[in-house]
Structures are given as C-alpha cells and as structure tokens.
C-alpha cells in the first residue's frame, strides 16, 4: 500500500502543483523519488508532529493540498489536538497518511502499534476516515481524498499486500465494495484485514458455506445502507479488523444494528481492550490475537 500511495501522490503532484508533502522525519526509501522530482513541494519538518500539523494547516490555508506522512500513532495520537482543532475544526485541506495499521510493526512494540486510531479519528466532527485494504483501494482513495476539499485520515498497512480488486475498479468515499457474493453470511472487513477476509471466505466456500465478502474502506462516511440491507435480509454478519474492539468497524456496525432496531446474528472480531505485551512479528502477533485462523460459525447455527 505504501508504494501505491507514493506512486499515486507523484501522479497527482505532476497534475496539480498545489500538492505538497510533509513528513515528520519518516520516509527513508519511500520519498526519495518525490523529493527529487518536486524539491519545492517536499519538506521534512523534523521529529515534531504537533508542529507539523499546524504547519500543514497553515500551508493549506494558503491554497496547498497538503499530505502529511508518518507512522500512524505519530500522525494521529501524538498530535491529536492539532488534528482536532487545526484540521477538523478549521476544516483544512490536509490529508494525514499513517503507515502501519494495527500490529504491522509487531516487534517494535505498542508505541508503534495502531489499535485505537480508527476510534479516535472517526470521533472527530468533519474528519473523513479511509482505511484501504489493498493497493487498488489505496490508489483510488488517495485520488478521492485529493479531489475532496477537507481533512482526511488515510490508514495504510505496509508494503506488499496483494491486489484483491482488479485494476481499474472505481472506489468511492462512503461506499463499500462487495468482493464476493454469498447468502449464508457476510464478512465485512476494513483496512489491512481484506486479504485475510478473502482467505476465510474462500475456505468457507470449500466447506459449503457461501459467504459474501464486503470491503469497507470508508469508515467515515460509513456505508450504513449496505449493512441495513444485510439486516433486512437476515444475513448473519461478522466484522473483521486489526483494531481495538472499542470504536472501530465492529462498533460502527453494532451502532447501525442498534439504530435499525431489528436483530441480526452478529460477531465482532478485533483486538480485545489490551496493549500487546507480546514480542514478535506481524504474523505472530495476529496468531496470538486470533486474527489469523477463521472463526467458528457456531453463532449462525
């Protein structure tokens, strides 16, 4: 996703000279090409995330379309009040791009994990929250965020995720994408769990269970309509995210269900309310937090 992001940003920068990239001292082996091509529209603001967000807001007020890049906790949590006031309250045209969704930075520890970012970012009025699940969603949503005049948070995984959608698929802010159709159950994923979701649905198919796979990269605005249809059709729902069970995709879907006032079988898969004190790589952490093997479907029997 990182490569899809930087390639798309370079394309946009070629088309529109308002595009400006700020980094708080991150981006080694990612931004060299951008720096060479657009030296006047790139700045390393230093390890000073709060200041960086303020600078981005100021640049945006002078007409720039500013992308700010760092590891997720540093571009969201470290500078949260600057994001809330300088970007959301003042409604500035700044796109925050965070890398390292969920447990991506496994062995680096909890300071580098991103398990609460969706919850805090979606709680901000006027903030758009996008969590692409593959390089196609990344490319498309970076473009959509560029076309949209306002603050956006884009949550990236790492690099090397497989393409799930075919090239040329159009992805919109506020819309889910049904990747596979099935009527026994619906698996809704967001962000970097799309690949795992695809694997589960394929495995269920071999077990004779037809599940649909719905990718939900747009967390805010949210495609409630699709979820409401599932409820109306009495299709059991599973949500899957590499994020705390508090405030993420599972929470949003349960809010939709509660508002609808009609019951549906529902299971939420995410990280329980805890820090990871486990040491190990991304895959290892996923296994430890039961995000790897497909869950039992007892709840729909």
């Amino acid at each position: 996703m990182r490569t899809a992001f930087i390639d798309t940003l370079r394309e946009l920068a070629r088309k529109d000279d308002r595009v400006f990239l700020l980094t708080a001292d991150m981006g080694y082996s990612v931004f060299e090409t951008f720096m060479d091509e657009f030296p006047d529209r790139f700045l390393n603001t230093g390890i000073a995330e709060q200041n960086t967000i303020g600078i981005a807001a100021g640049l945006a007020s002078r007409g720039k379309i500013v992308f700010v890049y760092s590891i997720i906790p540093f571009v969201t949590m470290r500078c949260f009040e600057q994001v809330r006031l300088d970007l959301a309250y003042n409604f500035m045209n700044v796109k925050l791009v965070g890398v390292g969704a969920g447990l991506t930075y496994g062995p680096l520890g909890s300071s580098h994990h991103a398990l609460e970012d969706i919850a805090i970012m979606r709680s901000l009025p006027d903030m758009t929250v996008l969590c692409p699940g593959d390089p196609i969603e990344t490319k498309e949503l970076v473009k959509r965020s560029f076309e949209y005049d306002g603050p956006v948070y884009i949550r990236l995984g790492k690099n090397g995720e497989p393409k799930i959608h075919s090239d040329g698929t159009r992805i919109e802010i506020g819309k889910s994408i049904t990747v596979l159709e099935g009527s026994d159950l619906a698996l809704i994923t967001t962000s970097n769990m799309l690949e795992t979701g695809k694997r589960w649905v394929d495995e269920w198919k071999q077990d004779g269970i037809n599940a649909s796979l719905i990718s939900m990269p747009s967390i805010k605005p949210f495609d409630s309509f699709t979820v409401e249809n599932l409820i109306d059709d009495e299709i059991p729902i599973i949500t899957l995210e590499e994020h705390s069970v508090i405030g993420g995709l599972g929470s949003i879907v349960s809010e939709v269900i509660a508002k609808k006032g009609k019951s549906v079988k529902f299971q939420q898969i995410g990280i329980n309310d805890e820090f990871s004190h486990i040491i190990g790589g991304h895959d290892f952490q996923r296994k430890k937090f039961s995000l790897d093997a497909k869950p039992s479907l007892k709840f729909i029997e």
Binding site: P107, L108, G109, S110, H112, H277, I279, G280, G281
Partner: peptide, 16 residues
C-alpha cells in the same frame, strides 16, 4: 531480541 515469542522487544517495555 525481536524474535517471535521473545523476551526483548524493539522498544523498551518495562514489563518484559
């Protein structure tokens, strides 16, 4: 250090 199921993480964790 830094290994799966290891004792010592990349950044300091006082619980380890």
């Amino acid at each position: 250090y830094y290994q799966d199921d290891g004792k010592l993480p990349g950044h300091l964790n006082k619980k380890t």
